[in-house]
Simulated assay, not measured.
Amino acid sequence: MTAQLTRRAVLGGAVATAAGAGLLLGAPAASAAPNYSTGTFPTLSPGMTGLSVRALRYLLTHRGHHCGIANTYDTATTSAVRAFQSRRGLPATGTCNDATFRVLIGDLPATHYGETNYFVGGLQTLLIKHGYHMDGTTYFGSKTRRNVWAFQVGHNVGRSDYVSMLAWSSLFGPVSSGPMYPMLQRDTGTAQWSNCGPVAAIVLLIHQGKTPSGWTWDVTTRRTAVENFRYVAMGLAHTAARDAIGTEYPDFVNGFGKYGMSLWHGGIEDTLTQARAGRPSIAGGDVYKMPYAKSVSGPVSHWVTVLGFDGTYYLVADSISATTADYVHRLTATQLRTYAATNPGHPPETAKQNSILLR
């Protein structure tokens, strides 16, 4: 877990506690832009194709206008939209615009955890569009909830078990980011408390649309992917002595190089600048200074993944978060600077060049 080659992963008891197959249709083509929410629904019209159209057909089916589930805005979809509009006193154009979407979604209770229905099928389809792996069960279970949380936080929508109108419009909106898969380093093998670097790297790879070796799109089976990155991509020895030591910049260069990616070494200000441009990076510092619940009880050198910026906050995945805080965190620039200002076990000057950035 440490970011220091010469320090053991656990500093004097700093760690408080030890410790898919599916319908993914390709990684999203994310734009280099911050993850803002989208307050207006797009207009979907006859002849269009894609996952947004598929999701619309789920919503129409839930409303009793059965038009089948497919990715094309065909005559059946047009007829269903026109019938719904007529029934609700809207102009019967057969084109689904913002006003139609708001009526289609708005007078139902917000889609929420524990439900099974076609609305959830539409939700899962839109999560797939944004790069999240879903199995198309139409059940809003723990996997769907985890992905909803990540999307909500990533688009400046309050993290909730409910899907609000703002979340729906953002889901139907353009892809502005890769998926965010926070995960813990606990239970990732014998090097678990030295694995903050490999876990941070896995999170970044997924966000960039690359599938890490051994990754199953299920964080409960993350160990294989994390160990593959540590021992195969980074090329670290699988021994008790090396497992007790964290990872440094040269290890990341080796690891990301296996995926055709090159890096540069900068500081926290570079991380903040890159995040505002929609580019993720890995930042080092003292995780004990982070403001959320975490599995440490004292200063620890650490790596986190900074995944983006929502217009107000920086979005951070931290593998040493407490199990009760295993989600994407929203931090201020001041909080990240405080985290990166010192790095236990490192000379003070290393704080000036303690971020790992993509070229």
Rank of each mutant, 00 (worst) to 15 (best):
E269P: 09
M261C: 06
P348V: 08
P299G: 06
V253F: 05
P344M: 02
T350E: 13
V316M: 02
P280S: 03
A237L: 14
L272S: 04
D286N: 11
G257S: 05
N254L: 15
V296G: 04
V226N: 03
S297K: 15
V328K: 02
R242N: 15
T338P: 09
G267V: 02
I320G: 09
G298S: 06
S262K: 12
A275Q: 01
A340T: 02
M290A: 09
K352R: 15
S281C: 04
N343V: 11
A322H: 12
A240C: 14
K352D: 10
D310A: 04
A317P: 08
V306W: 00
G345L: 10
Y259H: 05
E349L: 13
A283Q: 10
G260K: 03
T273D: 10
P347Q: 11
H265L: 12
V226G: 04
A225K: 08
M290K: 04
G278W: 02
S295V: 12
Y292K: 11
G255N: 05
I245M: 15
S295M: 13
A340W: 00
V300K: 10
S301D: 06
A293Q: 15
A275W: 00
E227L: 09
W264R: 10
G311E: 03
H346R: 15
G284T: 03
K294Y: 08
F256C: 00
H302A: 06
G235P: 08
G278N: 07
D243E: 13
S281P: 05
L336S: 00
G267T: 03
V232W: 14
W264Q: 07
D310F: 04
T338Q: 11
Y327S: 14
H265I: 09
F229E: 01
L315G: 02
T271H: 06
R276E: 05
Y288Q: 08
A322C: 13
Y288F: 12
A277W: 09
G285M: 00
H265N: 09
F309Q: 01
L315W: 06
G298T: 05
D286A: 06
E227K: 10
S301C: 08
A277L: 12
M261P: 02
R330S: 11
